[in-house]
Amino acid sequence: MFYRSLFTNAFTACALFSGEIALADSFNISNDDSSAYSLINSLGEPLNAGNAILGTFSSGTWSYDVTTSRWNFQGNSYAQDQLKYSDLMSMQNNFTSALTNIPEEQNGGVADGRFNLSGDYSSSLTSPVYLMVTGQDGETALFVFKDVSSDSLLNYDNIDISGTETFDLWLTTKEQALTNELDYYTECILGNINLQNNTIQLLIPEPATATMSLLGLTALMVRRKRK
């Protein structure tokens, strides 16, 4: 049994998908619990605005290898610290919502480092369950969920619920998952985790910051040349 959130609720419905009726199950993800991670930006400040999206990568694009903890794209393999700004933008562009009952921009709003999202997903999905959180300045964190007993990735086709049962997931550590009798815990696969204060720091500086840095460097070079 999954831990029942006192802060969240979800509902079950059928969705019209690809011209046919596709089964849909109720899915709920939250970090509102006191033991869950808090989201902060690259400056260490609580994330005040942004989006949380439950989804998947477009077919044939980015994927994550849970065994090697590396990203794969077009035959190439990358560690997190090897990803360029353009790679991270490519991830965002190839990430699509898996929820079928609400518009993508309403999946989940971020406020004060916390969020909540719920909805129905198509049961035809077989890819890993990814969660993307983006800040208002373009910063990003990405998560997968792992089985407490086997450490294997949670895939959409692993989820077998019916009726009005809710599938709840928390942004939480393995130890907290065991304490709260959760079946799955969170692994941040893009972002920096601080276990001491239970925060996740999003990555990707906003483009304006990088642009200003380049302009500043150019100005210094011009000034030095004139001297």
Rank of each mutant, 00 (worst) to 15 (best):
L16I: 09
L6R: 14
D32N: 15
E139M: 02
Y185D: 11
V133C: 02
A52Y: 00
C188F: 01
I189G: 04
S118C: 08
K225H: 11
S5M: 06
S58N: 14
R223F: 11
D151G: 07
E187I: 14
P207Q: 04
R223D: 15
V66Y: 01
E139Y: 01
V148Y: 01
G119W: 00
M1A: 13
D120E: 07
T61N: 09
D157P: 00
N101W: 02
N194F: 00
N158L: 03
D65A: 11
G109N: 10
L39V: 07
L47R: 04
A111P: 02
E104M: 09
V133Q: 00
L142G: 07
D112C: 10
Y78A: 13
F2R: 10
F115M: 04
T211A: 09
A36D: 14
G191P: 01
N9D: 13
P128I: 04
L6S: 15
L203K: 05
L39S: 05
L117Q: 05
R226A: 13
D137G: 07
C188D: 04
Q196L: 10
R70Y: 04
T172F: 01
D157A: 09
S149V: 13
V148N: 11
A98M: 03
T126Y: 03
P46D: 03
Y78P: 04
Q106P: 07
D65T: 13
D151H: 08
N93L: 13
E187C: 08
S5Q: 07
L154S: 04
D137T: 13
P103C: 05
D25N: 12
S149D: 12
S118P: 01
S18N: 15
Q80D: 14
N180V: 10
L171K: 06
Y37F: 15
L83D: 08
S58Y: 05
F27P: 01
Q82M: 08
R223W: 14
S26N: 13
N180M: 13
Q176I: 11
N158S: 14
A177S: 15
F11D: 13
L23M: 15
A24G: 12
K225S: 12
N9G: 14
P103S: 13
T126I: 12
T164A: 11
G60F: 02
L153N: 09
A15M: 07
F7I: 10
A210L: 12
A24V: 07
Q74R: 13
A10H: 02
S123P: 02
I200C: 02
L83G: 07
M89H: 06
G109F: 11
Q176V: 12
G216A: 06
L54T: 11
A98P: 05
T100Q: 09
E175M: 06
N194W: 00
Q201D: 04
L16W: 10
G55F: 00
A10D: 08
N41K: 02
M1V: 15
G138V: 06
N180A: 12
Y3A: 12
K174Q: 15
E104Y: 05
V144C: 04
A208G: 09
T68W: 01
F145Q: 06
G44R: 02
A111H: 10
Y78D: 13
R70N: 14
D65M: 04
D33Y: 06
F143H: 06
D183V: 11
Y130D: 06
